[in-house]
Amino acid sequence: MKRLLARDWWIWAVLPVMVVALYFDFVGSPNDVTLGASARILYFHIGSATVAGVAFTITAIASIGYLIQRTLTWDIWAAASAEIGLVFTTMLLVSGTIWGRIAWGAWWTWDPRLTATLILWVIFAAYLLLREWSDNRARRATVSAVIALIAYIDVPIDYMTIRWWRSIHPVIFTNQGINMPISMQIPMFISMGAMTLVFIVWMAVRMRLMRAELGVGDLKNAIRARIEGQ
């Protein structure tokens, strides 16, 4: 047990939550009246959407934080969050196309919602690519922060597309409440919680790795300075 504790036990807390989410998605909830079993795709879809939105929001906040305070911790937050957000956006798009094939009969339509989400994916993929192409840490952090803030503009637009325009994408969260029966809300919120937990743990792990990378960079510079000094 002590060995397990020393080996970062907290990561194991994700497993039972994952199992509970899977149980409620596939066993503990009824089939939808019109959509049938295909509604079960949506639980993960909504969870991924929530996490992607939260992740990109954290990236934007951390970018503002970096521009004000200029500490690399903010940059690590922004980068890790954008990476994980991109993974969840990918899951969102994939689960969305599968559901669209069943409900709408087409893998993809150029609906405002779908278009905005795809643009979001492309912009943040570009953001992450650009991060890889710069070697000066401080400059990379500043440019990335500015680009992240430009890219973030699409997130609120994406959220509002189905409310502003006539879109074929269903609206679940409205001003009048949640457009879903209670028996389906339970698995939805449990999936959302599970995905959020995965996001939190992933963030912790990823940021730890990034700090280790920074440590390696520092060490490399120190050794280089020593060799050049001799």
Partner: peptide, 18 residues
């Protein structure tokens, strides 16, 4: 889960090495 676990192990190893 497997990905996160491996990443955690690797970063711990990296920390120790550094």
């Amino acid at each position: 889960f497997g990905f996160m676990y491996r990443m955690l192990q690797k970063s711990r190893k990296l920390d120790q090495d550094v």
